[in-house]
Amino acid sequence: MFSPTESVYICHARAKGRLAAVLLGVVLLFFTALVVTLPAWAAGEDRIAVIYPDIGEPYRGIFEKIIDGIEDQAGTPVAKYPVQYDTDIGALKSSLYRQNTKVVIALGRQGMKTAAALDRNIWFVVGGVLTVPESEARMQPVISLSPDPALLFARLKVLMPTAKRVFVVYDPGSNGWLMKLAKEAARAQGLELVAHEAHDLRSAVRLYQEIFSVADNRRDALWLPQDSITVDERSILPLVLQASWNQGIAVFSSNSSHVRRGVLFSLYPDNMALGKSLAGLAQGILTSGDYGWRGMMPLRDVQSTINLRTAKHLGLNPGRQQGFDTTFPEQ
């Protein structure tokens, strides 16, 4: 039989035992979480990091979405480094080495510049840029933000099955690489791509004049690439829109905000899917230990937007089954 003192003691002992069990449980839980969440770190595995521009909204949100896609594909959180033009490269390198980083996914122009300044023994892939000079692009894989012409042309053929010819006015400095792909893509869709080079606004205007003087609204369409010279927003675009409206010529664009202005349709990046693609490239490099493929590739992870007002004007009937992600006008 226990005395009251003993029973108090036993109660304390039981309480201490419960406390110890709880503490043990917490410690076990902590280490389990550590092992589950940081397997690469614990095992000293090669890791992926993301370098992206430290800019404000709404573009920051875009990069965050791409990073969500990267982490989704990687199956684990990745180290993230927002960078600016004056980021300390030395400190960044030290941190990447500590993390055992072997591949960097560089997002945006600033992300790419920073990654290029790192040591050659850290591989990197690039996303979130429109185009890079060929000399830089051949060093590593770059997924451009320019939608794949093949996807644009396929969408055009669905909306306008009678289309036979696509005109485009482009600056070879920024879109030369894309036109090579576009010619092949057009052929695959049974389209003829009539591509005109323009190096300045004056020559671009003259070329648009020529296009509208020969264009036939039953078989011709006009493509506006992402090009600040040949598709000047303030001067060229309104007049192209007016001429195309008056003549009933379908115009599609690689710049999605043009759809709100009256362009028939456009494709824009699917950020989550783009992140997955970039992570897939990075994982491939980790596995093979080599870049494999290098150079620019167009964006295939896209969403679509259409201007229903323009579609009606052109006599096109886009069914819901064609699945546009965004429609204009808004109401």
């Binding site: 945006g108 122009r109 933000l145 690689s254």
Partner: peptide
């Protein structure tokens, strides 16, 4: 950076 992104993603409202 923002001008380049605007060409791909459209303006802020888009």
């Amino acid at each position: 950076e923002e001008e380049e992104l605007a060409l791909a993603y459209g303006d802020k409202s888009f």
